[in-house]
Design a protein around this nucleic acid. Structure first.
Lengths: 315, 315
DNA sequence: ATCGGTAACGTTAACGGTATCGGTATCGTT
DNA sequence: AACGATACCGATACCGTTAACGTTACCGAT
């Protein structure tokens, strides 16, 4: 008997004794079958070896465990077929809900889930027009704040190295950059926006590019830290110094950012919290079907100021 | 009917049609109940946010999926209680087998599993005296090879910065270092072995320590890359150059190792392969109860030569 | 026409729990 | 002594699937 009100404390103890003696483990499968509830959630993410996701997964698992759920996980490598397979797997395993990060091109799967009335929370990426609640980090705001930091230091000549513009994240960060430039009424120079692809090499090239302009920028916001590392090399190679000659802000706060010299000012993302929040939302949806609040949850990245930024006027 | 021999192709097709039409998903739970088989394996690791494990997890998941298994995962944070809980969870979920990385102090749990005849493979760490097969990376060999690399370059004055010696890994790497020194009949100086704790700061301190000796070493093997980064700082601070004045070999091949200047020579660990091998071994054990080969699988780390090492005689 | 073999069909019993219901024993209350 | 409340006990149905078995239908070969 599972905590029913009409069982006395005494017999509970007696029963517990017998349980211990026989080493009885309840069979979760049989339970799941009759209760139509597995106390399991699915976690479908693109790639656990991408440094963004382990923390997220940890947040999900920790919170799920606290709430008495376990998690079964799948990598999809952004492959549409594998995404579908992962979802089918979750269906056949009868998980109680799914935390999902789908590639944008795979809307159908989300629609199918909606039809079946599956409990789903989207994480990190939200498929436009889907009705499922999403838990995301505000890339636009992050980029806005990163850029504002440079502006507040007195900079006016600010460049931006973007990520691969096919990817929504890059678009959002570009948008945030533009918005900050606009808000503060600064000069907007198209040639100071250079596209990279998130790789270190592309950061190097883009920076080289910027530094060979006759009117070169005095500050740069770079869409991720890896490109910023590449940019560092380009800057040093030209005999320039950070932050004396040029201020640099990155994005992601990867491990190297605090190790490299000078320490890289960057935006850190609340990855663990993202996972926690997603688990929270999903499980409260499962346990308590009325959706108290089905608005998207938007977490804010945080600026980490290190030594790669400095005011333009400072000495 | 699941691929039984006495069903004709024709009816199979007919059935498939009906399946598609009704959108039927077989209920894995009911199946698991009657077949006593869940096609699920458990993955219990200390911490997915430790950069070592995501690749391992990916290897496990990829291979498991290829072999038609899914994986349910738990972090334990090296906490004995959570390890026990994770194992109980796996039992109640009736997974077909477990890939396990336990803290050394938690032997009992392994013994309990052995009693119950559970299918288990240990990964990364092997509990001494346990009968379960393990899939591990040979730390002693790695350290031996790292040190040999320095010796083969002509170095004779070689120091070692260890990790936290409470941890088996550190002991193994120290052992490999000593063995290499012994094999090549070099001078063995106790004071050239300094204990760190795997942190960057401890690497810095230990290196400072070594560099202030009157007979300072010309090469150093450091038990992990993070400490090596700290050591770099100490070396630069003393006005010395790598590798001209001192050669450095690290261990782990973290991302920074290839980014830092000069590129750090280090040992890389076959993490993905480790996960794959563990899944392979476990699932073949499950599917085919006769243990064809129940010896431990020992994978070899690989030396990555970059720019932080050079021969002693080289100009 | 008869026979044997093969494939499809239908039924039933498990798998290991939970929920529900009726029955019974025990207690305190009036 | 009769009553109600409370706690325990036992029986039974059910969750969705597979295995096993018996039956029936159909086909080609003798």
């Amino acid at each position: 008997m599972n905590d029913k009100p009409d069982v006395s404390e005494e017999t509970k103890k007696k029963i517990q004794k017998v349980i211990d003696k026989l080493g009885y483990n309840p069979n979760g499968i049989a339970r799941g079958l009759v209760l139509q509830k597995t106390h399991t959630i699915g976690l479908i993410i693109p790639d656990i070896s991408n440094p963004f996701f382990p923390e997220v997964a940890k947040g999900v698992e920790d919170r799920a465990r606290e709430l008495n759920y376990s998690v079964i996980f799948c990598n999809t490598d952004n492959d549409k077929k594998r995404e579908k397979e992962a979802i089918d797997l979750m269906k056949s395993k009868h998980v109680d809900g799914i935390i999902l990060s789908l590639s944008i091109s795979n809307k159908e799967e989300i629609y199918k889930l909606e039809e079946k009335n599956f409990d789903v929370v989207q994480i990190d990426r939200k498929i436009p027009d889907s009705n499922y609640q999403a838990v995301v980090i505000d890339n636009t705001l992050g980029a806005y704040n990163a850029t504002s930091h440079l502006i507040e230091l007195g900079h006016t000549d600010i460049a931006h190295i973007t990520g691969d513009l096919e990817i929504q994240t890059s678009q959002d960060r570009l948008e945030g950059f533009k918005r900050a430039i606009g808000t503060f009424d600064l000069d907007y120079k198209e040639k100071w926006i250079v596209e990279g692809d998130f790789s270190k090499e592309s950061g190097y090239k883009a920076m080289k590019n910027l530094l060979t302009l006759e009117d070169r920028p005095k500050a740069v916001f770079i869409a991720n830290d890896l490109m910023a590392i590449g940019a560092y090399e380009a800057i040093f190679e030209m005999g320039l110094e950070i932050p004396q000659d040029i201020s640099v802000v990155g994005y992601d706060d990867i491990e190297i950012a605090s190790i490299i010299k000078p320490g890289l000012t960057t935006m850190t993302q609340p990855k663990y919290k993202l996972g926690q929040a997603a688990a929270d939302v999903l499980i409260s949806k499962i346990d308590n079907k009325r959706n108290i609040n089905d608005e998207d949850i938007i977490l804010n990245p945080k600026l980490i100021i290190r030594d790669s930024t400095r005011g333009y006027e400072d000495e």
